[in-house]
């Protein structure tokens, strides 16, 4: 506890009785609850997880492990579960792409064309959130089931090579796309809504046709929303395990989240591997996001 108290107490301490300095430190004081929250519920568990990821199996005592500095866990975890990492990134990437393809026209319509239907559309996007995420995913299992409407139609048209949709990557990507769609729509809508219609009119005045105006004015102005939306979709989708668990198969669609779950909960003594996998996933996503933001996110992000 002492470490926690120290870190937290430090910025608050100078805000003493001296009223002149109080104003100066007020922002830090306001920051304190958030910082404390992050420290206790993010930094400290992260450090704990990191130490677990370096522990070693206790020889001869299955399920027990001892403190150690064992970086082999990382190598083992990565080499053994490389396909799962690949799938996580691929599925999350596909889901982000599809969510974007669906969201942009939707957000565009809401921002510019919907008129009085705008709030109704907004409710339709947000309302599913009132039901549990798990329940909605299980409902997808029923919708995509072999006897369900989608699979039946596709089967009669001979468009389904394996004969079923659930237990394939299609179901997993569809589930991810559906579940994270609002995270894509809302930021894009927010940035499109801020676009001044006069700017678009100015585009027309300068002899640009509709498409050129969209390409050179609307799209660049909505980029902050697109960037935020893709990040909000990609990051949780890459770590998701519910969709792969409920909609996917045992072999070809499991993602990193599933391996972490089973190493934590099903394999005796799998804690260090699971922790190492969590850290590797975090590092991978951080690296990808860093490159992405560097490439596409200019100062407009703020």
């Amino acid at each position: 506890m002492s470490a926690v108290a120290h870190g937290a107490g430090a910025p608050a301490a100078p805000a003493g009785p001296d009223t002149a300095t109080r104003g100066k430190f007020l922002p830090y004081l306001l920051l304190l609850p958030g910082a404390l929250w992050l420290l206790i519920f993010f930094v400290v568990p992260l450090a704990q997880l990191f130490t677990v990821s370096l522990q070693s199996q206790f020889p001869g005592y299955p399920g027990y492990y001892y403190r150690d500095v064992n970086f082999r866990n990382y190598l083992d975890a990565f080499t053994e579960f490389a396909p799962h990492f690949g799938r996580s990134l691929l599925f999350a990437g596909l889901a982000t792409f599809f969510a974007f393809a669906l969201s942009y026209p939707l957000a565009y319509a809401m921002a510019f064309k919907a008129g009085r239907w705008r709030s109704l559309m907004m409710i339709c996007i947000i309302a599913p959130f009132f039901t549990s995420f798990i329940l909605r995913t299980i409902a997808w299992r029923q919708i995509l089931a072999d006897e369900g409407p989608v699979a039946k139609v596709l089967n009669t048209l001979h468009l389904l090579p394996g004969g079923h949709i659930t237990e394939t990557w299609m179901a997993v990507v569809a589930g991810l796309t559906y579940n994270f769609l609002p995270f894509m729509v809302l930021p894009i809508y927010a940035s499109l809504e801020r676009v001044d219609p006069r700017v678009l009119e100015a585009g027309g005045d300068l002899y640009a046709n509709g498409f050129t105006t969209f390409r050179t004015v609307t799209l660049p102005m909505s980029m902050p929303g697109v960037l935020a939306g893709t990040l909000l979709t990609f990051i949780p989708a890459a770590g998701d395990y519910v969709n792969a668990e409920l909609l996917g198969s045992d072999r070809s669609t499991k993602m990193v989240g599933n391996v972490i779950e089973s190493q934590f909960f099903k394999v005796p003594g799998g804690y260090p591997t699971a922790a190492a996998l969590s850290f590797t996933l975090m590092a991978l996503i951080l690296a990808l996001v860093f490159v992405y933001v560097r490439r596409f996110g200019t100062d407009e992000l703020v």
């Binding site: 506890m1 002492s2 470490a3 926690v4 206790i40 519920f41 400290v44 568990p45 450090a47 704990q48 990191f50 130490t51 677990v52 370096l54 070693s56 206790f58 020889p59 001869g60 005592y61 027990y64 001892y66 403190r67 150690d68 500095v69």
Partner: peptide, 26 residues
Amino acid sequence: RRNLLSIGAAGASAAALSACAPPKPP
């Protein structure tokens, strides 16, 4: 319980630095 985990972490990280030899069995 949350705080406990953090204490565990503080203890664990301190011990992680010094511990390399396998300890006594449970």
